[in-house]
């Protein structure tokens, strides 16, 4: 049994220690807002926060989570910055298919919590998740709006 704190709740999980956090969230705990896209740290669809840091959960073995608190998209609106990010996403109608957008919102929230007024360079550096629907410009505009 491994103990986890996710979105402020405590869970005990029975899974192999090398199981990626992504699949524990999705399949064991039913938190399916976090998405599987590539499994190899390429796409960022699986982005969650570990102690506030944007982290690709497909690369986080269960055994390495330890005491770090996990925040997923399901709780993002409970965070003040997260709520602003979501409102900007809605206002600017960012998503197309939407599949990458949980990860994009998580990455944007982590960026704005650390750097409330990011430069264009900060946005390029932090927002590296793939979007096959090509919503990159709308994403950048929404990050700017959420920071304003």
């Amino acid at each position: 049994m491994v103990n986890l704190t996710i979105n402020g709740r405590h869970y005990s999980v029975d899974a192999e220690p090398d199981t990626p956090l992504l699949f524990v969230l999705r399949d064991t705990l039913g938190l399916t807002g976090t998405k599987y896209g590539c499994g190899i740290a390429q796409c960022g669809a699986c982005t969650v926060h570990l102690d506030g840091q944007a982290t690709r959960s497909c690369q986080v073995p269960l055994e390495s989570v330890g005491n770090q608190t996990v925040t997923t998209i399901e709780a993002i609106e409970q965070d003040e910055v997260g709520r602003k990010v979501v409102e900007a996403w809605v206002a600017l109608q960012v998503p197309q298919c939407g599949y990458c957008q949980s990860g994009q919102v998580m990455a944007a929230t982590a960026l704005l919590k650390q750097t409330p007024h990011p430069t264009e360079g900060d946005i390029v550096d932090a927002m590296t998740n793939l979007c096959r629907c090509g919503t990159y410009n709308a994403i950048a505009a929404a990050v700017r709006q959420a920071a304003a």
């Binding site: 807002g33 996403w89 109608q93 998503p95």
Partner: peptide
Amino acid sequence: PRLDVRDKSTGRAVYAID
């Protein structure tokens, strides 16, 4: 405004994989 945008911005949209 699109009907699905809020759900897609908050992880609530449900795809086949979910």
